[in-house]
Write a protein that binds this DNA or RNA. Structure first.
Length: 435
RNA sequence: GCGCCCAUCGUCUAGCGGUCUAGGACGUCGCCCUUUCACGGCGAAAACAGGGGUUCGAGUCCCCUUGGGCGCGCCA
């Protein structure tokens, strides 16, 4: 697989922008083999193609200034016509060129008839040529535009399928005019629907859309995101889960619908949770460690876990992962492990630790301290006996225990927590809260 | 404004003229499991945008309306 970076817009193609693309794709697991091709490095080739077009009289120099073009569009708009370039330089000679104006090169596009796109997803789409003006091939500074560059590169690189968002549909028509002027065969085209925001409004950077890197910080797994994304606008019967292998076998343009989908975080979370549970503990641990630096408060948590707490984390991971839909939730649900004593209790935990409960805990603590063996089952046995002796339900002692040990009212099974925390830490936390 | 495209539960979708009293998934709501929360299991509510045609028969074909989206740069 080959990666091509379309960097013909020099101002926007900053190193940061390019790194963000590379980084995002790599994280998502969308790999490429050879060195990326930077489109701008092929500018010389693009200019050569334009020379051909010029000498074949399929393109021409245009001396209209940006101000002139603005004016043109404004007037057209006010007269109810489409805002287009009017082709005023189409058939003029260079002798008429105003001095001091650097020209652009425009394609001499057909003015009548229509251009048809045979699209694998959209079907046959016909655009009147009157709605397509003479697009710019070379800017006045001599650099190629994207419109020209894609066509030349796709042709030179032997691209068989052009698959992209519908926002490129009319570009496809324009590009076909370039193919036609060059007498080149047109690759298979497929324009897939766009993804909308949860509110149905458009999803774009300008409207709060997230870059790939944001999904990493949100704690999603690349495999889960891929799975979620592939099911947006495409389906394969009733199947919901697809491994990379499955996708490769099952995916086809025939299954792609034409209507746009809304992005639904609830479903993404569900799928992510599914992947987390389905993963082996070792793989999940690995994914978690890799993601940690990017998660909110992750670096801080990493520092604390590095102080010998990883074994405890690992021990509780099977219980923890049942309760988390994202890596962020996983981190949050594990935070009691490395919280410093005395623990800060959340509101619900404080109310669980009423005086009555505190009294029970102070009675239980010495009994636990006397245990010769500290395992989940030995502790459980002891606590169950305690509950019976004091004629309380298990929950009446388990909940205060949970509150005292985790600072919360929700956690993995409490006896597993006791075991993971170990005797010393558990007893210390109990002492902190049994007042 | 002009051009193009879209329209099944709240959301993602199955459906390619009769098997649809419309299926699955997420979400929601019950119940079960249970030391909490999850997981898991069982169950429920929930949709063919509206109107005309075509046809023996329309969610499925055609037209209109309405509602959405995309495009109209010396951006990509």
């Amino acid at each position: 697989m080959l990666l091509r970076i379309e960097d013909t817009d020099r101002a926007r193609s900053t190193n940061e922008a390019i790194d963000a693309i590379l980084d995002g794709l790599a994280w998502l697991g969308l790999d490429w083999d050879e060195e990326p091709v930077f489109q701008f490095s092929r500018a010389e080739r693009h200019r050569l193609v334009v020379d051909e077009l010029l000498s074949a009289n399929r393109a021409y120099h245009c001396y209209s200034t940006p101000e002139e073009l603005d004016e043109m569009r404004r007037i057209a708009q006010s007269e109810g016509r489409p805002p287009r370039y009017d082709g005023r330089w189409r058939d003029r000679t260079p002798q008429e060129a105003p001095v001091g104006v650097k020209p652009v090169v425009r394609l001499k596009a057909p003015r009548e008839g229509e251009t048809a796109i045979n699209d694998a997803v959209q079907g046959r789409v016909v655009i009147p040529n009157a709605d397509l003006d003479d697009l710019v091939l070379l800017r006045s500074d001599g650099t190629p535009t994207y419109m020209l560059a894609v066509v030349v590169d796709d042709h030179d690189m032997g691209i068989t399928h052009v698959i992209r968002g519908v926002d490129h549909l009319t570009n496809a028509a324009r590009q076909m005019q370039i193919y036609a002027a060059l007498d080149w065969p047109v690759p298979e085209m497929a324009h897939i629907p766009l993804i909308h925001g949860p509110d149905g409004a458009k999803l774009s950077k300008r409207h709060g859309a997230l870059g790939v890197e944001a999904y990493r910080a949100l704690g999603y797994l690349p495999a889960a995101l891929r799975n979620y994304l592939v099911r947006l606008g495409w389906s394969h019967g009733d199947e919901e889960f697809f491994s990379t292998e499955d996708m490769i076998h099952a995916f086809g343009l025939q299954g792609v619908g034409k209507s746009p989908a809304r992005f639904d975080f609830a479903k993404l979370e569900n799928i992510n949770g599914h992947y987390m549970r389905a993963m082996s503990d070792a793989d999940l641990l690995d994914a978690f460690r890799k993601a940690l630096p990017y998660l909110p408060d992750g670096p801080d948590a990493m520092e604390r876990l590095d102080k010998g707490l990883w074994p405890i984390f690992e021990k509780l991971l099977p219980a923890l992962k049942e309760r988390a839909k994202t890596l962020v939730e996983l981190l949050d649900s594990a935070s009691f492990l490395f919280s410093e004593r005395p623990l800060k209790l959340d509101d619900k935990a404080s109310s669980v630790l009423a005086p009555e409960a505190q009294k029970l805990l102070s009675l239980l603590t010495p009994q636990l301290a006397a245990l010769s063996l500290w395992t989940a089952s030995s502790v459980e046995e002891s606590v169950r006996a305690f509950a019976q002796d004091h004629n309380v339900k298990l929950g009446q002692i388990a909940q205060p225990l949970r509150a005292a040990l985790t600072g919360r009212v929700v956690s993995p099974p409490i006896f597993d927590v006791l075991e993971a925390l170990d005797r010393e830490e558990s007893l210390a936390r109990l002492a902190d809260q049994s007042g």
